[in-house]
Design a protein around this nucleic acid. Structure first.
Length: 318
DNA sequence: AATCGACTCAACCGCGTACTG
DNA sequence: CCAGTACGCGGTTGAGTCGAT
């Protein structure tokens, strides 16, 4: 016994929307809102469409704040970073890009950005299995934007060595933008003799954990652009085990945060930057630790009273 | 001008989850 | 607690467009 279809496909119009249909839907939603009931909406709006189709049309095309095309380098970097960090969670990624929809971001990634990434990756090494940040055995997807942060155990085996974002060659794209490669962020610890960054803990979000290079953390400390430093350039010290790497990673997002904050992508005080939506329910979180890009951000944390804070220690990377 | 292949992106599909009675 | 329903999401499809030949 299968699921009942959301509407009778034989009796509703399908395929591309006409301007008249668009206007019907637009004007109805303007004056009545969606009413939280997409199934009933088409009949009320005078549309011979499936409610699901109406919802998609509104969300992906008719909403007044939608942007199409013209992705900026900054948006490219955000997409790459978050893709590296959390995988194909397009709705989350899109939520960090004002005016972008999950469908649009997904299409942009699949048709353009991924190719940039592939091209970039050939400069480094054969592609690792995709989405290495996904540890499905820990994956508890939380629908509706709810957050559940859990500490994750180390992966069963070392997966990849490099994470990556780097400036593309000038000729790599018409926009001259950056691209990122696939694969997990580097999980190397710096060798003891060269360790500059503080010991970092892993921030696990909804079962996903991203870790970047400790070298990148050091780059943050040195006030350089972390995006330029997210490439693993040195092999791991022989004594470094996967578990060591896993436990000592710095979250990619932590490293990425300074640039985002600096670019005004996130409001002051949004100390978790790109994971804002996931971390809305901060009261239910338990962090092993968290890191802020600089002392000022770390100092803001205890002073911030307008958000619910997770349990856990927070430190500055500087 | 015609053809063909590559590319784009709007739309669809089916699944997992939340919600509701 | 359970079953039915609706929503939201990510993967996939295919019609339309564009550029090369």
């Amino acid at each position: 016994m299968g699921r009942a279809p959301c509407c009778d496909k034989a009796s509703v119009k399908r395929g591309p929307w006409s301007p008249e249909e668009d206007e019907l839907l637009r004007s109805y939603v303007r004056s009545h809102g969606t009413g939280g009931n997409w199934i009933a909406l088409p009949q009320k709006a005078g549309l011979n469409r499936c409610g699901k189709s109406c919802r998609l049309r509104w969300l992906n095309y008719l909403r007044p704040d939608i942007k199409h095309g013209g992705y900026t380098d900054q948006e490219d970097r955000i997409i790459c970073s978050l893709y590296n960090s959390i995988g194909s969670r397009w709705s989350i990624i899109a939520s960090k890009l004002p005016g972008r929809t999950d469908n649009d971001v997904k299409n942009y990634w699949n048709t353009k950005l991924k190719k940039k990434a592939m091209a970039m990756h050939h400069h480094h090494q054969p592609p690792p299995p995709q989405q290495q940040h996904y540890h499905h055995h820990h994956h508890h997807r939380v629908a509706g934007g709810g957050a559940r942060v859990t500490l994750v155990s180390p992966p069963p085996a070392p997966q990849s060595q490099c994470a990556s974002m780097q400036p593309s060659p000038a000729s790599a794209s018409s926009s001259g933008g950056d691209a990122c490669s696939f694969g997990a962020a580097a999980m190397y610890s710096p060798s003891p003799s060269t360790q500059q960054a503080p010991q970092a803990a892993t921030l696990a979000v909804a079962g996903y954990t991203s870790v970047a290079t400790a070298a990148a953390a050091a780059a943050v400390a040195a006030q350089r652009s972390p995006l330029d430093e997210l490439i693993c350039q040195v092999p791991p010290p022989p004594t470094t085990t996967a578990a060591d790497c896993w436990a000592s990673g710095v979250t990619l997002d932590d490293v990425f945060l300074p640039e985002l904050v600096g670019a005004g992508e996130f409001p002051n005080g949004d100390l978790f930057g790109g994971f804002g939506p996931l971390l809305q329910d901060r009261s239910s979180m338990e962090l092993s630790a968290c890191y802020f890009p600089n002392a000022a951000a770390a100092e803001m944390w205890p002073a911030a009273t307008d958000i619910v804070k997770p349990a856990g220690l927070c430190h500055s990377l500087t």
